[in-house]
Design a binder for these strands. Structure first.
Length: 298
DNA sequence: CCAGCCGTTCTCTTACGTCC
DNA sequence: GGACGTAAGAGAACGGCTGG
């Protein structure tokens, strides 16, 4: 008979190891927490599996056959290997080498990824982050295939197949350059509507946003003269022109050379979610990263 | 010879997986 | 969900061996 692997064979190998160690069916049973007949039955199955008596009776217990002696070390090594697999994986940030793929808009790159990278350099220098743009249409498939591990998105992009965690709610502020001619004036609706605006739109084709919706509800309108697909470029444009913009608060919070004021009207903000695939739900390293991101974003 | 120890065999129960 | 088969373990009984 050829030895075959079954789900229950692990117990047989444990019994074999106990028999090798104790040289007694009774003491092996004690060691395993079983009764002597149970171990005797296990020995019978081992004999059938290996087509060898394995142990022969003596006056004081049992002694291994040459075949059992030959099996002793491989079985011990196999059980040790299995035991090491069963030990819960402990994640040590400072000792882990890992590359994660993170999809993020340029806003999220500035507001979330930048603080994360700074934090990782200190606490987990072995973790590399590959940042890629958010491909709204293919995000779910990219996560399923492992191309993307996590993504920073808005709730409207979330799908049922993804796990997600709310990071924060974002609001808008009025932004113009520090030495803008209007910087000395209080920001009110009249001033806001009098100035030329730039907005960020993902494909650079939209000239209306949440601010325009809010203005329309009040019977007002503004003049949007530039639609830019990147917050960063939009900010540079504001720095070197008389344009103003309503931008996410976290985006400009620590930037210098900008004049930042509260908007004179209520503009609907947005939420940011961290999303990931189910397969990473219980991964120790990813759990640690998700906690770190949430902590930095709070 | 007999008590005690040890391993084996038989039978029963239980748990679990598979199939319909 | 029920019927069925299989495997594992427990308990009881048994046989072999040893020492007093």
């Amino acid at each position: 008979m050829v030895a075959d692997i079954k789900t229950t064979d692990l117990n047989l190998l444990k019994a074999f190891a106990a028999l090798i160690e104790t040289g007694s069916v009774t003491r092996a049973a004690d060691m395993l927490g079983l009764t002597q007949p149970a171990v005797s039955g296990m020995l019978a199955r081992l004999r059938d599996t290996f087509d060898d008596p394995l142990f022969v009776r003596t006056q004081r217990g049992v002694i291994p056959t040459p075949r059992a002696e030959a099996l002793a070390e491989p079985v011990r090594a196999a059980l040790a290997a299995i035991q090491s697999v069963l030990v819960p994986h402990v994640f040590e940030p400072g000792m882990t080498n890992l590359t994660i793929s993170l999809a993020a808009t340029d806003y999220a790159q500035k507001a979330v990824v930048l603080p994360l990278l700074t934090s990782l350099r200190h606490d987990a220098p072995g973790i590399r982050v590959a940042v890629r743009p958010v491909d709204r249409e293919h995000l779910a498939r990219q996560m399923e295939s492992g191309l993307v591990d996590m993504a920073l998105i808005t709730p409207d992009m979330a799908q049922d197949t993804m796990r997600s965690r709310h990071l924060f709610d974002e609001t808008y502020v009025c932004v113009m350059r520090d030495n803008h001619p209007a910087a000395s004036q209080p920001m009110d609706l009249d001033l806001l509507c009098a100035l030329d605006h730039g907005i960020m739109s993902h494909d650079g084709t939209q000239f209306r946003g949440a601010t325009d919706e809010a203005l329309a509800r009040m019977g007002r309108r503004r003049r949007v003269v530039a639609s830019i697909p990147s917050f960063m470029v939009l900010i540079e444009m504001i720095r070197c022109s008389d344009l103003m913009a309503l931008l996410p608060r976290r985006l400009v919070a620590e930037m210098t050379g900008l004049h930042i004021t509260e908007p004179p009207l209520a503009v609907t903000g947005f939420s940011k979610l961290l999303t990931w695939h189910e397969r990473l739900q219980h991964d120790a390293a990813h759990r640690w990263l998700r906690d770190r991101i949430a902590e930095l974003a709070s």
